[in-house]
Design a protein around this nucleic acid. Structure first.
Lengths: 118, 118, 118, 118
DNA sequence: GTGGTCTAGACCACT
DNA sequence: GTGGTCTAGACCACC
């Protein structure tokens, strides 16, 4: 994984995990890698890995059981919620960048449809 | 500017310049900073800066005049062409990421309209 | 300050600060010591001090302004809210220990009144 | 057991034993663990363990019989006396901390009743 | 100067 | 083995 220098690593890794949960690659109730494993996988410090899970836990996406590990919560609709949240973030950033190019809403819609049908 | 480790810096800087041209911040015919100036502005190596202009020249966006510097070309429609190219790149990457989340074309369109009207 | 080994230091320091806020020793809007100062005052590591403020911020008690410092929020009723929360915590722990001694609610009330009038 | 750094360990262990006597977990006339056993149970130094019994003996709570061990005294009302003493200590410390928060006697009584009925 | 992030490595409690 | 806490020290961005 390549990290953007301007965003904290723990957020980037967290977003990566959220993407996997949102897309169903990681299922509700599933056990996430241990802090040390996560640290190895992403080549980060164990403390940073722990912080990743702290954030996800705070967002109600996963829960951690001492001595056992960290698990994706099984709450109904959680996956859908995460997916929508990420989709809106992506969309907002997309619109912002398109408008910075000087494109109107109509133009954006037009290009989007053309590219969709490729 | 924050560089993404996974993409060559000269491409990232080139894209930044293209964005400024596409949005009109830099006008056709305008003189671009010298290689050394560019290197300072973006805190990059002068060799990398030179490569940035090589790429833009190859794409027909700017031209270097011996002893004078590098200028944005004045060809009619160039600005429009750059803008559209960047817009399509952004859109493709946007669609790719939205689909990776498991969203259909309809859902993407729906969210886009909602966020546009905010 | 003497730390109880069984409770995280960052919670104990946080509680100490909350007590000072609840009792009015620290006023709303007031600037709290910088992380490094707090670390010196309580003889703890700067990272632990930072964590203290992270917790208080999460609880909506203080807010941190980058490059400026950490401040107690000025929201109306915040002080009262913190005071009541701490009071209830103290009371619950008191009742628990009194009952562990085998005392009934009546006995507790009786002793309390006697001690109050000393 | 978790020790508070600010209070001598022999007092903390002594209080723990007194609590067990007051609540009836340890009965009058019962044999207390030997000094060495106590040291192991609480993970303290045998000298400290001996000092614990010195204090309890001085307070008239237990008595040591040469070659036999240490026993809780069987005096009538002793248990009741210890219980009341501990209860008063707890209450005094409780009142002190509640008042430090700026609470009046009435407010303390009100919160106490509310928490009792939970 | 401030807070924010990251690394490194230690120790503990829980299972 | 797991996560939770703490220390130590580094570098960065903001003011």
């Amino acid at each position: 994984m390549n990290f953007d220098t301007s965003i904290p690593i723990y957020l980037q890794v967290g977003n990566d995990l959220k993407g996997k949960i949102a897309s169903g690659q990681i299922q509700p109730g599933e056990k996430l890698p241990s802090g040390r494993e996560l640290a190895q996988q992403y080549q980060i410090n164990p403390n940073t890995a722990a912080r990743v899970y702290q954030v996800l836990e705070q967002e109600g996406i996963c829960e951690t059981r001492r001595g056992l590990g960290t698990y994706v919560v099984e709450e109904i609709g959680m996956q859908q919620k995460v997916r929508e949240e990420m989709a809106r973030d992506l969309t907002r950033s997309f619109l912002e960048r398109m408008r910075a190019l000087g494109l109107s809403g109509e133009e954006i819609g037009k290009i989007l449809k053309e590219e969709e049908n490729r």
